[in-house]
């Protein structure tokens, strides 16, 4: 499933330095990794690890200082049509002046397709995230969890090959968060989309990912690329109580502690 000859997404020697008027800040020093087609990879790191900067560079929203991002063999120089981003701040990412239906529809207007096809995509995407009968509601009339579902539906309807998620569940309550995590696993398996999921939550990264990339403190490098050898069928109750889940979590936790102290892997 995730063995393709050329990677879906390749990040090569990425470096990002913010040039300010009075000082320069090196946010990302040197990050390289690749994601195979259909993979679900989590990026986890301490706060201030430049996770959002990295994601914005990958999404084509921010130009890297050095290095490159290659999506399906093409260098990313601006937001690619084969990529969709789900932001943490759903309340600000969804447009309050548009209904749920119009929010999900808007990005599709860029793509050439018939009105029927567009409506079909919107309907299917909302059904896929278990939202029904809210098409004519405004986002602010919904709960936080439902709003993030709308944002996910908008991304799904866009039919991306790669779905980027920037701490999407950091602002919702624990119960809603567990539901949304399961929703992401279901969508990922059903749609076969490649997912890159940024989080600061170690448990979340282990529960969701096939691989977890551990980031160092800024200036960022990758500390370790951990393969999550948990069964493919995951449930909140059973997976999280597996001994292997505990081991992986403990390992990543200790690596993050090292990262927080500012130590980096040898050779960087």
């Amino acid at each position: 499933m995730n063995r393709a000859s050329t990677p879906m997404l390749e990040v090569k020697g990425l470096r990002k330095v913010y040039e300010g008027a009075s000082r320069t800040v090196e946010a990302i020093r040197d990050v390289s990794f690749s994601v195979a087609q259909g993979e679900l990879v989590c990026i986890v790191g301490p706060s201030g690890a430049g996770k959002t900067t990295l994601l914005k560079c990958i999404a084509g929203l921010l130009a890297p200082t050095a290095g490159s991002v290659v999506l399906e063999g093409h260098a990313v120089t601006g937001p690619p049509p084969a990529m969709a981003v789900v932001f943490q701040e759903y309340g600000r990412s969804l447009f309050p002046w548009m209904t749920v239906h119009d929010n999900v529809t808007l990005p599709l207007k860029r793509k050439k397709m018939s009105a029927e096809r567009r409506e079909e995509l919107v309907r299917d995407a909302l059904a896929a995230v278990d939202l029904r009968n809210v098409e004519s509601a405004y986002p602010w009339q919904l709960s936080g969890g439902m709003q993030q579902r709308v944002a996910i539906a908008r991304a799904v309807a866009y039919e991306p090959h790669v779905l980027l998620m920037d701490e999407p569940f950091a602002a919702v309550d624990a119960q809603t968060r567990a539901d949304l995590e399961d929703l992401i696993r279901v969508l990922w398996r059903k749609l076969g989309v490649t997912v890159l999921f940024v989080t600061h939550d170690i448990d979340e990264s282990v529960y969701l990912g096939q691989r977890v990339l551990i980031m160092s403190h800024a200036p960022t490098v990758i500390m370790e690329d951990v393969t999550i050898d948990l069964p493919g069928e995951r449930t909140q109750l059973e997976t999280r109580s597996l001994p292997r889940f505990g081991e992986l979590r403990k390992h990543i936790y200790s690596q993050i502690q090292i990262a927080k102290q500012g130590r980096k892997p040898a050779g960087t």
Partner: peptide, 23 residues
């Protein structure tokens, strides 16, 4: 965030004016 959302979905200058800046 609204501006970046619009950009990430490839909305051009006119679409951004119409759907984001104007409202």
């Amino acid at each position: 965030v609204a501006r970046e959302t619009a950009r990430s979905y490839g909305l051009g200058t006119w679409a951004q004016i119409r759907y984001v800046i104007w409202p």
